[in-house]
Every structure is written in C-alpha cells, then in structure tokens.
Design a protein around this nucleic acid. Structure first.
Lengths: 241, 241
DNA sequence: ACCTGAACACCGTTCAAGT
DNA sequence: ACCTGAACACCGTTCAAGT
C-alpha cells in the first residue's frame, strides 16, 4: 500500500478550445484518467469505501458523467484489473533458435505479477472471478502460453500453465492481504499465528502444532516454495522427459 | 447450481411457549437457519442480488432482526463460507501405524472441496480473500495438515500444502464460474473459446492457436491435470527423497 | 460529444421502543 | 431475549435536459 494520502484532489483541468476547431471541447474525462483516479482512490481509502460517486467527486465531476465513459462499475473493474496486470513486466522472448530458460522466465513473471498486485493491494478483491480479457491480460496470457509452448509443452498444458500461474499468484496475494487493510503482509501473518495459538487446546492438534512454524520465515520464502512446486509440477508434464 | 426455485418461501414457524416456562418464546431465528436460508437465496437468485434485506424477507422477518444474530454482512459471509467448506467430506485418518496414502487422500479432499464449492456456485465470490477460521475450515485445515505431517513433510511445507490446495481449488472453481451465473462450467468454457477465436488476428498468436486446444477436453480433466501438478510439486519437497 | 439535475429503487446499519 | 419502526447515510444507474 503506497502512501499517497498527501496528494489531495486532482487539479481541475481546463477545457481547451483550439481556435481551429472552436466548438470542440476536450473531454474532461478519459477512461485512462478514470482508471488512474480509481487506483489512487483505492490506494488511499481502500476497497470497502470505493464507490462510483466518490470516484466522481475525486475527479471533480458529477457522478452520472462516469457512465458516459464506462457502462457500469463492473466494466470499470475490468479496466482496473487490466491496469494492474499491465504493471507486470514481461521478459523479452528469446531470439529465434536460442534455447529459452522457460522455468526462469516463468518464475520471473510470477514474481513480477505478485509485485504488481501487492502494489495495488486494495484492488485485490476485484481480481477474483474475472476473466482477464483486456489488452494487458491478453498480452500476459499470450506471453506465458508462448513461453510454455516454446519449451515443448502441448497446447493444453501450456494454456493450463497460464491459469495455474494466475490462480497461484492471485490466491497467494489474496491471503497476503486477507486480514483487512492497514496491516502489512507480515503483520497479517502474525495475527494468524495469534489466532491459531488461541485455538481450543486439543481440538486442532496439527494446526496448533503449526502455529510457530507458520511464522518462522517470511512470505517471500513461502511464495518461492509454492512457485517451485508449481514449476516442478509443470515440468512433470513435459512430453520429452 | 441446484434448482430449488420451486420451493417458495419458508413456512412460518410458530413461536412455541412451553407451559413450564411461559415467558420464554423460542427464537424465530437461529444462526443455522439464517445461513441455510442465505445459501438457498444465493442459489435461487445469485450473488449480485443478495442482500440482508432480501434475506430478511425470505425469512419472514424485518431486516434489523438479522443484526441480533450476526454482527454484520461480513460475519454472515464467514458463516456461509464455513458452511460450504463443511460439505467437503473428509476421509478417515489411517489407523495409527498404518501407512497413509497421503497423495490419494489429498486428491480426494481436493475433489470433494471442488464439488462442495460447485454445489454452491453462487457463493464462490465470497470465498476469496477470507481466512477460513470457522469450525469447518479449521477442521479441514487440521486434517490436510495432519495428512501431510504424517507423510513426513516438515511443518512449514505441510501448512503451505494446505494453502496451495485452497488456492488451487478456489481459483479453479472461480474460473469455472467466472462468466456470470446461468452458464454451466462447460458453457463458460465455450464462451471463452469464442472470445479467443474472435481476437485480432496476429496480435496474440499463441492464444489464438490455443483456442481449440482449450475446449477439446472437459473441466474435470483440467482439474486433474492441475492437481497432479500440485501433488508432484509437493512430493518434490518431501525430505527423505 | 460530453456533462448535469433530478430522480428511482435500492442498500447496510443503528437505535429507541415494543413484547 | 428477541424482534420491529423509523430513520440515517449512503449506493448504482437512468434519463431528459443542458451546452
């Protein structure tokens, strides 16, 4: 959660009328600006209090105006999700003929995606149950699928590898941010530890035994552990081995 | 999505006053009844239209009454999530000293969990980003963790194996139900196929190449594929091998 | 083409009051 | 102990009207 709480409302942007085209005002709003403002509002105030009306206020516009630019809140959420995915850096594809380190690049994308999501932690709730069909989502999908196909996976497994990556990273980031806003990932982990330690004594023996192991190393380690598992699970499906 | 649309509203339950205890009326509502009615309302009308007020109407009660029994909507959602997890059958632990087929039982739990979730497809949106600390969630966690510890995994990996199971199954079920209500999983898959086929020609070469492979086999196969991956990823972390 | 005023049909939640 | 009436402070969305 980046702290931008000191930025205040956006400065009003003057309508500019070019002399050559006197009747045509620049639109005050664009989709890109709306999405940017939405991400900022989410970062500052969190998901629970986000609303179209508050977004309109922040943009210094009356709220029905937003509906000229987006069909409904869900469409705005699609755009926001795509913007988040767009912040995941994609490694360059290898030169034609060069052997590609598919596992390394897959891991790199996974880490970048986790980073992108955590940079917009308040947007996590709107990432689940949404097909990512925006340009950034498609680009990401195409890149991952291409990586796996290039490595020799059949099309089915390649497609599925992409989905596994998404499930894993979003699921993980979801847990990292599951204890409500305001707490960092590590602090959340400690609350969970606490909750487990307070469990009725003999009722959940394995869980209580776990409560210390749970916090002894950080979230990064856990992420890598799962990622390693994901990769070795994938590698087991590679045809020529 | 089970079809219960013919069931109609719940019959009014009479307040019963026992002669021995004349002043004490049976409460009209219990948490269990509220949760049952909520699941039914979700199944009949879907998540989007679910509200505390509609739930109260279905229960033939004025809506503030619900707040005597639950603190707020989020707490009700916690209870609903726990009820869904409670429908996942848990295999019996092996006798002490008997070798346990950990991978088989892990897979069994995963399949049962997917089933339980799909039986309440409309409740999927409220499963993400929630720690499952209700009795059923804890029991499930304890069972899975115990299974993995018994198999020789260290505590850390055992705990993480449980989380991976959750991410995977919820993520998968989330995708199965991601195209809005009313479509079955397989129909959704076809919409996605359609969407991919309509993509701009050369922009996403790997994705368009995939669009047929995507639908050639069913969701059950895909689920098993990912599950196999998950298991072999886990197995790779087993200390003594 | 883009924005606003006014309105519709809702929400979740609180709280004093009833029984 | 449990339920209700009435109210508060909101929502998302539509649509005729303005410029």
């Amino acid at each position: 959660m980046t702290d931008r709480s000191a930025q205040g409302p956006l400065p009003p942007r003057p309508r500019r009328r070019t002399p050559a085209d006197p009747g045509r005002a620049e639109p005050r709003l664009t989709r890109a600006e709306i999405v940017r403002a939405a991400l900022r509002l989410l970062a500052e105030q969190g998901y629970e209090t986000f609303s179209m009306r508050r977004l309109a206020t922040v943009l210094e516009v009356k709220n029905p105006s937003l509906y000229w630019h987006v069909q409904h809140k869900e469409e705005l959420f699609d755009l926001i999700a795509d913007a988040v995915l767009g912040e995941c850096p994609l490694p360059e594809p290898a030169e034609a003929g060069q052997a590609e380190d598919w596992a390394g690049k897959f891991a790199e994308i996974a880490r970048g995606l986790r980073r992108a999501i955590l940079d917009h932690a308040a947007a996590v709730p709107l990432l689940s149950g949404r097909p990512f069909l925006g340009p950034n989502g498609l680009r990401l999908a195409d890149r991952v699928v291409g990586l796996l196909r290039g490595a020799g996976f059949d099309d089915r497994t390649a497609g599925y590898g992409y989905l596994l990556l998404l499930y894993y990273v979003i699921g993980f980031a979801g847990q990292e941010t599951a204890f409500g806003p305001g707490e960092t990932g590590e602090a959340r982990l400690r609350s969970l530890h606490q909750a487990l330690a307070e469990l009725p004594a003999g009722a959940y023996p394995h869980l209580t035994a776990l409560s210390t192991a749970l916090t002894e190393r950080g979230l990064d380690d856990r992420f890598e552990l799962g990622l390693r598992g994901l990769l070795s699970g994938l590698a087991a499906e590679l045809p020529g081995r």
